[in-house]
Design a binder for these strands. Structure first.
Lengths: 127, 127
DNA sequence: GCTTGCCTTGACGTCCACGTCAAGGTCTAG
DNA sequence: CTAGACCTTGACGTGGACGTCAAGGCAAGC
């Protein structure tokens, strides 16, 4: 299939697909007239990339999954390198969640502790 | 005080201070030779900005707090506009935390479900 | 032949909070 | 007088994942 169909079926843009290729994540055969020619496997790769990007992975972090898939595995998760990325991401997520929760607490305390309003005519809390 | 001292005491850079001014968050008097001249109040403003940026606010979101302080309030939180930003941020934080926790669950499930490793030589797939 | 719609490469624009460099003015110590 | 430590404005660079435009080639329908 050509790049337009690939992008459509993967739910992304042709620009994104070319970008992935420029980053070495994809390699496409070419037809006689120079058009990129993709297989169903390529579609799976792009979908894997999109899926990982959507949950906050960086593009580089998707590389192990893509190569794992291309190595013939049924799932991009089935390789040690992918597992390692998952582990790192899990730790990152934990740290991020904890930090956000601390900030949340901080913000909530500011909201709870009632302060005198400043601009003279201010009714109560607006919800 | 001059911009260097202000930046030092606020724990940031002169470049950042000039940037805040360019965004209309700060206004500085000038000495005879053209140097910016700051007061202790300006120091408080910059510290407020830094503090909010540190917990993930955008620069624009600090504006109500800065104006609240400059309006003569003891705390930047003491104005309705600031409270409104806090409320919005709280909602954002809740949404963000929830999303991250869902992803965390997803990643954890991938890690728990043991899969066959691939790193040998796998010939299958590849359509 | 002409239009339409796909494709190609290349290159600049986006967002945000600055970092960094350039080229110069100002003040102080020695 | 000079060095150096501060200050000024202006302008370009950063990172990440693309968006968007330019200029043109290729294929199919009318």
């Amino acid at each position: 299939m050509r790049i337009g169909e690939l992008a459509d079926r993967a739910g992304t843009s042709t620009r994104a697909v070319r970008y992935y290729e420029s980053q070495g994540l994809l390699r496409a055969a070419r037809t006689a007239n120079g058009y990129r020619d993709y297989t169903e496997t390529d579609l799976r790769l792009v979908r894997e990339i999109r899926s990982l990007l959507n949950i906050g992975f960086g593009l580089e972090e998707t590389r192990p999954f893509v190569e794992c898939l291309r190595a013939g595995n049924d799932s991009g998760d089935d390789c040690p390198a992918s597992i390692a990325v998952y582990r790192r991401k899990l730790a990152e997520l934990d740290a991020c969640i904890e930090r956000l929760q601390q900030i949340r607490q901080h913000v909530r305390r500011q909201l709870e502790h009632p302060a005198p309003y400043c601009d003279s005519s201010a009714p109560t809390l607006e919800s």
